[in-house]
Design a protein around this nucleic acid. Structure first.
Lengths: 252, 252
DNA sequence: CTAAACTCTTTACAGCGTACAGAGAAACTC
DNA sequence: GAGTTTCTCTGTACGCTGTAAAGAGTTTAG
């Protein structure tokens, strides 16, 4: 994989200067290919995304895609940046905390629409325009809080990490259950008896107590839909706020 | 994938009762297979882990593994639980905060030794004994803080999410660079010129400012080795501490 | 001794990413 | 206009994957 070529593709800085060229016109565009690939990944997951499957609905052969895209890995890079374009703008969010909230929720929404995204984020050696814009936006929200640059970066990573963890958890549960071709109830019906003999109150007292409270059975970990996510997010932001306050106290 | 069988395999509750059986003895054990697979994944990554590659050093054919393991997915489940056994005990850590620190650092150490782990954690429909023990331990550390059960679970997810985010970031960067067959310097040499024309100070003012501070060039995001991780971890714990303090104030 | 039950092997299949060679079309040079 | 160059797109092929199916060989039960 040539990083320079992959980067050029992400920013779509490849073909323009030489047009019109000699051969026949290109019948497709990178964007069309990327959008098709995204819809396939949304429906069937990244594993099921093959070059042949992308080519078919576009009416071309698999090898034809290689005229536009160096390979599967680079296509996935583009898909990621494509869907990151759905992130909300952080302009006029009203303070760093509101901006970070919007950022986190926006990322979570993307992860919900595109469950294949969470495992990919932060392979960030190759950033496309949308990912770059996200970074610029969230760093802008943190500018003026008195934090050092490296602290800002660490905070963005922190929020990213939290959102990804929460998103992947949802996606993975779905993935497992769907792969088994069962409903949640059927799943627990199959695994329940075995689980109960294994996870005894003597061996795992703390876990069984929490288990018995019924928290695990509610999607989103209780507290209503997505309150598990919101709760954790507020804790993250509390931690950041604490840090910002301390910074402000250190040098007023 | 049959979840009941996968679960039984994770807890190694399968073959024992029927021994001695009729056919020839089994020449391998699930543990040997799992350990071999782990060492391959450590060296070459999960993508490169194939049944044939696992079988070869064990001196058997690929299909022979299917006597022990229903398939690749279940093998990977076992590999995950195997390496989660490396997590440190949280007994006598001295308070919830120290325990959570140890938990987070232990998880990070595992991720460093086994870079293929972070994307897998929290596909937690199928928990093995070691993952169960980890949950029990960390929940035990949070018992007595006055938190509700659902809050404890959210907090564990929060810490998990943070660690995973941090770990995956390291792993991904390595992965990208290694895949390109370059050093970091060569990477930046190739992508730098293009990047600079794309990421202009006018279009991305906040990012360029942070970029110019040089933070991104230091591994671990500045502040010395792993200080990026430590810094974010302390922010997470601050947020949790704030919550626990508020809980304590609410009902003393 | 026969039959059942088990392990392990061989073969095979459908699918994958993509290297390679070639067909056909468009635009350049003369 | 003819010839050459350069491009797009296709078909074929290779080595890889997970694993289904069938069979060979070994150990125990009856």
């Amino acid at each position: 994989m040539d990083p320079a070529r992959a980067l050029a593709l992400l920013w779509r800085k490849e073909q323009e200067p030489t047009r019109p060229a000699r051969g026949p016109r290109q019948g497709l565009t990178v964007d069309r290919i990327v959008r098709t690939a995204v819809s396939i990944a949304d429906a069937e997951g990244l594993d099921a995304l093959s070059m042949r499957k992308v080519a078919e609905p576009l009416g071309v052969s698999a090898m034809s895609l290689y005229t536009y895209v160096p390979g599967r890995a680079e296509l996935i890079n583009c898909m990621l940046d494509e869907v990151l374009g759905e992130a909300p703008s952080l302009r006029d969010a009203g303070g760093w905390r509101a901006a970070l909230e919007r950022y986190a929720r926006g990322s979570m929404d993307i992860a919900r629409r595109h469950p294949w995204v969470p495992p990919l984020v932060s392979s960030r050696m190759l950033m496309g325009p949308n990912e770059t814009a996200m970074w610029d936006g969230v760093l802008g929200a943190l500018t003026g809080t008195g934090l050092e640059e490296r602290e800002m970066v660490a905070i963005v990573h922190l929020v990213n990490g939290y959102v990804r963890g929460a998103a992947q958890q949802l996606a993975d549960a779905d993935h497992d259950v769907r792969r088994a071709g069962l409903s949640y109830d059927e799943w627990y019906e199959k695994t329940g008896p075995l689980l109960e003999t294994m996870i005894s109150a003597e061996r795992f007292p703390n876990l069984t107590q929490v288990w018995r409270s019924g928290v695990f059975e509610e999607p989103g970990e209780g507290l209503g839909p997505d309150r598990g996510f919101e709760y954790g997010l507020q804790r993250v932001l509390d931690g950041i706020e604490e840090r910002i306050a301390r910074r402000a106290a250190e040098r007023p």
